[in-house]
Design a protein around this nucleic acid. Structure first.
Lengths: 325, 325
DNA sequence: ATGAAAGCGCTAACAG
DNA sequence: CTGTTAGCGCTTTCAT
């Protein structure tokens, strides 16, 4: 089943094109500061294509001193629809920068993040949560040049999102708000950031701070939370994301509350199923793929030694009004 | 932020231990057929630890001719709870064999599977679906030594699972069965395999073949499917997995059918939320982590050149009776 | 504008 | 039992 079949090397290409290996390297990598005549470049490219040449990643990484691999630290599964989409879009955006994203799953035992980075010779690590200081130093020791934790608001304007949710609810006349935090396993950082934005908005409007409760993606758990909110006379709740909001909706129905009459609900993400809920879910939409491109840009910049690019304003998140709030 | 900090190399270890680089390589890789005195081995190990030595993956791969990286081709997100757990357990099991699993997400554009494999210098690729023939040859060309598609029944006894579902339903007196296939984006192979098992059981019992319908994870879509089943006088349905079964449950409720009275439902996987459904979901349980270890073992064997090990009988899947069927 | 040559860090014959 | 010696395939000065 295993037919080695000798891969073509850059020497082969050089020979086929009648140039030196150096030249091949120059044209294939588009080395700046080199003056390669069009004719030569064409010959090399043509030979490479003809031989179906693929540079050997390990050899390249060894010689260059760093790979083009970015390891994405995936949160515990299952993840939200938009976290998944973010990862996909992020990988796509990185590919545009010549970088290859590959994921490591939290929930894998017997291999630390540093182990994995070392094994794949990653030059960057990106995660949704903050990494522990000693994890970071371990990473540096294995040669990871850049470590990014998104979710502090660097990729998505979390603070603003929370604020928008609160403002929408308050504009609808609600004064006593609730906040639905995601279940235990979910990334906490973005959630607390959004909650913070909500708290700010409440303060600004002179409302009491929101009653934050963790709600798992189970009708039973959501019903419990809804009951607690009722006890605190909460009339509207903002959820960390649409999945959680959907759970709240289900919890409200289980407790026979009308939505938005007795309890208004607003989510975040505008996932496809939000429109299909009963009632359709009011939510906050924002350009996820833009956030992903933004993050990819930052990683690429860090890797090429340059500093982060300018903020490049994200399309502002906005409320998508439907019937739940 | 980027502090290179010169990593220790095997030469450093050799020097520190007062031996040659070769010896270091031998003891660190536990090279068979070598007789290293305990004392020397100890010195090397100690020096390595003291210097916090980590072999450079790229260098190792370049010299050895192959890496210890296994790329897992993740299905389109979101995936089922158990597909996720499988991936995690699989990675864990591979780690036990000294292999590092890393995932590539379907849904990433601008990078083919072969591209990614080449970029990370993977020596094996594992997926849940069959790979297209030309994909496989492209993979071979970039040096991937082993390509595995689980989901044909090689990791999980899908056929048997379908059969068990049908037999359970039939034993409950049902003669007209329905089958709920997963939504479009889900891996199809395992589903068709399970459906096949179910068909066999129906034939054996002299029942009509099951009415298979695709149902998305939406109450509305499930309600539609339930209506179709009703029209065909189906009294019991087996679902591809618990998530789908849960959707069917919701669909039945939406159509005001009692479960299991008017419609019996059985899932597969025994995910945590199965017990929390109303009524609690009857399902098929099996040892997922065993399946993962089994698959890991096969990959490790293929990579070390040996052939697959003996079947190593999996713990038989079995019905977990609850109230939905 | 192009090539020669020196490694990157590690493995693996092959000697001794 | 251990060290010497070649590379693995590519990048990158430094000459030419």
């Amino acid at each position: 089943m295993t037919r080695p079949a000798k891969r073509a090397t850059s020497v082969d290409v050089a020979r086929a094109a009648g140039v030196s290996q150096t030249t091949v390297s120059f044209v294939l990598n588009n080395k700046p500061g080199q003056t390669i005549p069009e004719e030569t470049r064409r010959r090399v490219l043509e030979a490479a294509k003809r031989l179906d040449y693929r540079p050997h990643a390990s050899a390249r990484a060894l010689a260059a001193g760093r790979s083009d691999i970015v390891l994405f630290s995936m949160p515990y599964l299952p993840i939200s629809v938009s976290a998944g989409r973010f990862a996909e879009e992020f990988a796509t955006a990185l590919a545009g920068h010549g970088l290859t994203m590959v994921a490591h799953l939290a929930g894998v035992h017997g291999r630390s993040l540093a182990d994995v980075c070392a094994s794949v010779d990653a030059s960057a690590l990106v995660g949704l949560e903050e990494f522990a200081p000693d994890t970071v130093s371990a990473l540096r020791r294995v040669g990871v040049a850049a470590v990014f934790s998104l979710g502090g608001g660097s990729a998505v304007p979390d603070r603003l999102i929370g604020r928008l949710q609160a403002e929408h609810l308050i504009s609808r006349g609600h004064r006593r708000l609730g906040y639905a935090l995601p279940g235990q396993r979910a990334p906490r950082r973005m959630a607390t950031e959004r909650l913070l934005g909500m708290e700010e908005a409440c303060t600004d409007a002179g409302c009491a701070p929101p009653a934050a409760l963790t709600v798992d993606l189970l009708t039973t758990d959501a019903a419990r939370a809804v009951a607690e909110w009722q006890a605190q006379s909460v009339t509207a709740v903002a959820a960390y994301n649409d999945e959680t909001a959907l759970a709240v909706l289900a919890g409200a129905r289980a407790r026979n509350l009308t939505v938005p009459g007795e309890l208004a609900v607003i989510g975040v993400d505008d996932i496809p199923t939000a429109t299909l809920a009963v009632p359709p879910l009011t939510t906050i939409a924002f350009d996820l793929s833009h956030a992903a491109r933004h993050a990819a840009e930052a990683v690429a910049a860090a890797l090429r030694g340059g500093e982060a690019q300018q903020p490049e304003l994200a399309s502002r998140p906005h409320v998508v009004e439907r019937d739940s709030a």
